[in-house]
Design a protein around this nucleic acid. Sequence first.
DNA 1: GCTCCTACGACCACTCTAGTCCTATAATCA
DNA 2: TGATTATAGGACTAGAGTGGTCGTAGGAGC
Lengths: 161, 161
Amino acid sequence: MLRLTKKADYGLMAVKLLAEHWLRQPDEANRALSAKDIADAYHIPPQLLAKILQTLARTGILVSHAGIYGGYSLARNPESITAFEIIRAIDGPLFITSCITVNGNCDLVGTCTIKEPLSKVNDSIREVLTKIRMIDMCEPPVGTAHGHEKTELVTLDTHSH
Amino acid sequence: MLRLTKKADYGLMAVKLLAEHWLRQPDEANRALSAKDIADAYHIPPQLLAKILQTLARTGILVSHAGIYGGYSLARNPESITAFEIIRAIDGPLFITSCITVNGNCDLVGTCTIKEPLSKVNDSIREVLTKIRMIDMCEPPVGTAHGHEKTELVTLDTHSH
DNA sequence: GCTCCTACGACCACTCTAGTCCTATAATCA
DNA sequence: TGATTATAGGACTAGAGTGGTCGTAGGAGC
Ligand code: SF4
Ligand code: SF4
């Protein structure tokens, strides 16, 4: 539940890489990265990523450039691109429950008593995602450093018994 | 994406109704509501709701009582029950991405550069859900009242037709 | 013209969701 | 005791959604 799709996940990774590339390459000429480049960098399926980037280009977050030495680059500077935009562009505008954004296929909308509280939850999550700009993901060690490096929660315990 | 399952949705509605029933009925005797009662109140599939309530009882949020005049009631007072518990009990502990809580079937965990930012998003959402107690959902017109009464949505219409 | 790239629709395997059905069991009352 | 009412839980299914592939069309530079 409440899980992000992998497409949105891939999209965030791609835009993050493009944002870093943008910051590294001030001249516009070399700003583009092809879908295959990004896919290779993260070992994600190239054709799938291509479609994701196409979607992002269609919504105006990226600009595409066909032909040799073509590819994708950011349409705006990475300060103005939020994680919310990217997720919304890829996964659509739908949110927590069926009834909130769309008028909903849920026929309980008359008797339901929790759609207003959940609507607030929805707003909170959207706000959290909107606050995250791509430039924030590019520079991890800025402020709010409370020691405790590494944050190694995963530990990857694949103890194959 | 980021959508709550309907089971969790139903679970929240049920616990909310039980919480209101708890507040109305100070004596412990009449606190129980059967699965069918709740299902009828909201027109949701009774057998599906039954399984949800069983799950909630198994995790200790509700207590069940078999037999005639049996049913479910809250295991604790509605101040200490959060929306997060209910959602987690029904939909499991999994969250935003595959890699955060579980060790993850995602094999990009080595190259991925966004799992730490997303982990913070995950924490934010969990915090939002943890802050919502059931008693908060029961009393809408407390502060932040901007007119718009009505609040009488449940009305417990067990009118046996 | 060739090659590299985007654009897009069709397609598929797989998983998850929502819901049903069935049987077993526990508690209450007559 | 037995009937009734309720929970407990497993098996199962149709449908939707996800993750991913393939093939083709078309634009851009050499
Ligand atoms: S109306 Fe209620 S039950 Fe239906 S989707 Fe909205 S919150 Fe969920
Ligand atoms: S490792 Fe990265 S790509 Fe994989 S699930 Fe986590 S955030 Fe997503």
